[in-house]
């Protein structure tokens, strides 16, 4: 099984307000179909690592190979296209477009990609919502849903373009244990059914323990993986 993502001596520093090295010589790799969690104390650099890995943050040194390509050689627009086609995001705060319906939110990445017709995209969006038990909410405005429902909508949106990898930054941070369990099951199913890679930052020890692999960060360094 190949690596979907691999870093070589990846480092990142913030310069403002003071020089601060948030990531130090990180060498990690995530296999296709692997469900990994990133843990570590607050401020250890988990989010920072996730943003760098997910191509949103390009201010780093070292190399990140994504699906075989060196990301440092890609233009901003190339990276946007990679995010659109190969990466799904789920954040702690769900970040839906509040004035759009659930269905429209889920469609957004696919409409950008424009690989399928609008009707097909809608059909696929329904399928994803179905998978997450939200088909009956499709035509509601996003902000009319509960927090847990919105988080599942965000996951459905992350899935719409069938990405190779899904990143989550504390995707269960705002959920109760039942919903949290639910999200875990969904991720597990995605990995098993669709061979998608999942990388999740979490403070939830119970959640982390059940993933394939735990990457532990401390002060910007990987201390175990």
């Amino acid at each position: 099984m190949g690596n979907i993502i691999e870093t070589k001596i990846l480092s990142k520093s913030f310069h403002d307000p003071v020089e601060f090295q948030a990531l130090k010589n990180i060498n990690v790799s995530i296999k296709q179909g692997e469900f990994a969690s990133i843990v570590g104390s607050s401020g250890s650099g988990k989010s920072t690592l996730l943003y760098v890995l997910s191509t949103l943050d390009t201010d780093y040194t070292g190399h990140i190979f994504f699906d075989g390509d060196d990301l440092s050689l890609k233009s901003k627009n190339d990276l946007a296209a990679i995010r659109n086609e190969k990466i799904g995001f789920v954040f702690q705060f769900h970040y839906l477009l509040t004035e759009f319906t659930v269905l429209e939110n889920v469609c957004l990445p696919a409409l950008k990609r424009a690989k399928y017709s609008e009707a097909e995209i809608r059909e696929r969006a329904y399928q994803k919502l179905e998978l997450l038990g939200l088909a009956d909410q499709a035509l509601k405005k996003a902000n009319k849903l509960s927090g847990g429902q919105q988080q599942r909508v965000a996951i459905a949106r992350a899935l719409i373009n069938e990405p190779k990898i899904i990143f989550g930054d504390e995707p269960t941070g705002n959920l109760d244990s039942k919903n949290s369990q639910n999200v875990f099951e969904i991720f597990k199913e995605l990995k098993e059914k669709f061979n998608q890679s999942i990388v999740v930052v979490t403070h939830d020890q119970h959640f982390a323990e059940r993933t394939d692999r735990i990457i532990t960060l401390s002060d910007g360094e990987v201390i175990s993986q």
Binding site: L56, N77, A80, R83, N84, F89, Y95, P109, K112, R113
Partner: peptide, 16 residues
């Protein structure tokens, strides 16, 4: 601003 962030995260280009 959150809309802008999410659109960028899901692959909308700066020009979009």
């Amino acid at each position: 601003m959150p809309d802008i962030a999410i659109l960028k995260a899901i692959g909308y280009k700066d020009s979009d």
